[in-house]
């Protein structure tokens, strides 16, 4: 075995060992199988190709788990994602009820049509309640493994950020002189991220079909 060849073999092995970490829990046997089989592949180039295939297989498995919506996604991935998605809206909500941080006041633009602005701000406060609602739903999902079952809340979590985005756009189009208000940051933090979080939350809460549940729970034969 040449030095470059053994390097290829080591590279292939390293690649597979790294990739199998992405496999969902309960797939340990398959991870070991891929690593072991690699060491029986004839030549180093084929081993590298085999390793590349294993990486693809692992990614496909990970994606399959994510699309089947079971609870095998790491909580350490969901938790920060949900925080990122719903925390900004929660801060806006907290600020709107108690001026905790003063973020809303800082962001509030100088308005030329007060009545319209007041309506919009009140509407935004109502929509911003979806921030803590989303956080609570996410906490139930992550910590207690309870899916989001409430249909009104599901609708609100999707419709809320869309409404929020529509309000921001309306604000920008109808009220002149937004001052220091950053429209794009508002759109991202108040609409984009909560919508992303809500879609993911709903996706993870989607009931599995009997067949999927049965197949997911059955273990490989001995």
């Amino acid at each position: 075995m040449t030095a470059s060849a053994s390097l290829l073999r080591r590279l292939a092995l390293g690649l597979v060992r790294l990739a199998v970490r992405l496999l969902p829990p309960g797939r340990g046997d398959w991870a070991d199988a891929m690593i072991a089989e690699l060491q029986y592949v004839d030549d180093d180039r084929s081993a590298l190709a085999w390793a590349g295939g294993c990486v693809i297989a692992v990614i496909r498995q990970r994606m399959r788990v994510m699309t089947t919506g079971n609870w095998k996604i790491s909580r350490w991935i969901i938790a920060p994602e949900m925080l990122l998605c719903f925390l900004p809206l929660t801060i806006v909500w907290l600020d709107s009820i108690g001026k905790v941080w003063g973020v809303v006041m800082v962001a509030a633009p100088p308005v030329t049509a007060p009545w319209r602005a007041v309506c919009l701000v009140i509407a935004m406060m109502i929509v911003a309640t979806l921030g803590p609602a989303g956080l609570i739903a996410a906490f139930r999902l992550v910590a207690l493994a309870r899916p989001l079952c409430s249909q009104p809340l599901r609708i609100a979590l999707i419709a809320g950020p869309i409404l929020f985005g529509a309000l921001l756009i309306t604000w920008r189009l109808t009220i002149a002189g937004l001052g220091g208000f950053d429209f794009w940051s508002g759109l991202l933090l108040g609409c984009g991220l909560p919508l992303l979080g809500a879609v993911h939350l709903l996706h993870l809460s989607w009931p599995e079909s009997d067949a999927r549940g049965k197949f997911a729970s059955s273990s490989p034969g001995a």
């Binding site: 398959w30 199988a33 085999w50 390793a51 590349g52 295939g53 990486v55 297989a57 399959r64 001995a222």
Partner: peptide, 19 residues
């Protein structure tokens, strides 16, 4: 291998394959 393993895993999950 990128095609083989997903099929093997699926067949195993469905109880069609022993390992």
């Amino acid at each position: 291998s990128g095609t083989l393993y997903p099929i093997l895993i699926r067949l195993s999950d469905r109880g069609l394959l022993d390992s």
